[in-house]
Design a protein around this nucleic acid. Structure first.
Lengths: 209, 209, 209, 209
DNA sequence: GCCTAATCGAGACGGTACGTCCCGTCTTCGG
DNA sequence: CCGAAGACGGGACGTACCGTCTCGATTAGGC
């Protein structure tokens, strides 16, 4: 993340740009507070106090605590959810779904994600941002294995990738966000198996035809 | 919900229990506020003011605004989501999933559900209650068509009903709560189709064997 | 006090009059609360809880917590502040002022008196009751030694008793209620001395004339 | 009181201290409410609303409504109760006692004083503050005529000034706070006369010796 | 090497809602 | 009819944060 931003030295205010130090302190403080005290325990005042930053500095660069958390999440997301490229659909899907489940249920950024997804239910404008900045990139990564499989001919070229994704990750998110059931590897593996079955059946059947 | 409570005449409180009038006013006010102003616009003070009720009366019977919304939701849920009993699995599932989608995306109680599901991400204790009181009964209803199909022999007796449900409704909730995509009938029908396909294939294949 | 009321047997409500048991429990509870927690710690709810009495029972017989305290005070006052009748003004005044000082500064009913006097500053109607029911009788007792002295010829018949009282007890109340200074016997004795001096001087001078 | 504070320009708060505008608005609102609705009508919420100030701003600088009233009173006191310096004890005392009586019974700050004196009966900590901040300065002013008289030789050098004050103002406060009797000039003049009599008698007698 | 302007920390400000306490009224039912 | 019990509509409490504002100190580029 800091890679795509010009490096900024620590300073106490000047006319030429914001303090990177303050920015990082704010994002970390927000992450920490979320982990320690939950979403309700994240407040602008709390972030400011923990980050050693003035409230005004937060309001200058972010519009709300949700905005801070989105930025904090985006910083972490890409690192965790890039699916592997192994040349085999089943294997890639198994790995990716296992990782996704682990990310969502166990990791700190996963907790941030759940909190943001929760807040999105309360605030349509925020939901829009959440979908654009958090879900969009993630879903783009999710598509990759399927697109590569289509290119390789493992899946038919007319495959509805979006529908496929909904079938593959939908039950996963459902467990994480709705039922709260655990998401063991058996579960994600079974989703992959169920998803791939028709294609295997077809292929097995076709030679006979 | 009102069915399991003895009818109570209007009164201003006495030793024999609470005022049903106040209870209903509170639930309605909460529902209305959620519909009009969103979750953040639902406050205990706002509910009290709109319901013409003292704050203390709310705190006496509910522990938080979420508690009020849960009760309001439970009152509405059963009426909307009882799946039909038509003797045909495919038909029942299509109808039930269509209704569920409509309920979640279009109705006022659906909005309450989404808000509660959102809040559940922020508050583990509340999530527990949400799952017990809202999801449990709903999921019990969801199971019915599948269980009847097993009894009728439409599905094999060893069918994993929970896994089946996750596949059927998971993608639906995923769209509603996460991606925010619309949930047209084509989508739910396709989920049913995808779910039933293996069983049809098997049955179609068996006679040949 | 209970002497001027018909004896009432303990009961839990009947059509034959109020419960003396409840009345006494309320008065005692109010006294105790005042002693333990101060005036602000005396609440109708607190009295009711401690006395094992319903709030309504208090409101049925008293108009406010102040009303309860007034009744509690009146019960106690007369016992403590009846001045002695010794046939000697100086002696009677010394004793009475010493007792009054002790009563006001040390005793539990004195604490009630101070609280009531305080509340009288905030509430003109209550002040009226306070003066009629608490101060009136007390001041009538205070007058007695002076009136007897006039009858005996120790004081001139045109003595302004009210003014005399203001001089005698005014500084005492001033210390108790305003400055909070202690009121030792030297102080009250000096007040008596200062009050009687002119009469002694005159008598001493007259024979010479 | 405003004399010992640097003048502050109007502002909405900054690191350099509080808003003088808010402070004055609060004190005036408290005074007004006391005059209009009595002590019970003075509430923090009421003061805040009338002063156009946030409750938190009051709690930031004062600990209670009583604290506000004390500050409001102190602001007013010195202006009203500085005794005259005329070089004649009797005259100064007459004037000062008349003014004091008028202040206590008729003026708005006098009403504040009575309310504070009342509250002091309910709250020992507050009583301490009341005595230090309100009574102390006032009593220091009260002493002045007597001290000057001692310097001038009008009173003997061993005069007990405190006892003298108790005799002079005690009955006055007694009437104001306890009996509620009016305090006409005849009354205060008589107190002065009674107080000075022994000294005149003595001086008149001495030349003969 | 100043000047100047954006940014920093700090924190007071007017507000909203919180959850609690107590008010005084009411409604019941048992004795 | 009185009593205990306790729910009710209300008002104020004192607290936590909100988002805005003003301030003096800090700091780097332009003059």
């Amino acid at each position: 993340m800091s890679a795509d931003r010009p490096s900024r030295t620590a300073h106490h205010g000047n006319r030429h740009g914001r303090s990177e130090q303050a920015r990082r302190a704010v994002l970390e403080a927000a992450d920490d507070l979320l982990a320690e005290r939950g979403f309700a325990g994240v407040t602008i005042e709390g972030i400011a106090a923990r980050a050693g930053v003035a409230k005004q500095t937060i309001y200058r660069w972010w519009s709300s605590k949700v905005d801070v958390l989105i930025e904090a999440f985006v910083d972490d997301m890409a690192q965790h959810l890039t699916p592997p490229d192994e040349g085999d659909l089943e294997s890639e899907l198994r790995t990716h779904l296992r990782r996704s489940a682990r990310f969502l249920t166990r990791s700190d950024p996963g907790a941030v994600f759940r909190a943001l997804a929760g807040q999105a239910q309360h605030d349509p404008e925020m939901a829009e941002r959440f979908r654009t900045e958090c879900l969009g990139p993630q879903r783009a990564l999710d598509r990759r294995p399927l697109e590569r499989a289509i290119e390789r001919g493992e899946l038919p070229p007319d495959t509805d990738v979006d529908f496929a994704l909904d079938q593959l990750v939908g039950p996963l998110y459902y467990r994480v966000l709705v039922t709260g059931h655990p998401v063991p590897e058996e579960f994600t593996d079974a989703l992959v198996e169920r998803f791939l079955a028709p294609f295997r059946t077809r292929r097995a059947a076709e030679p006979r035809a």
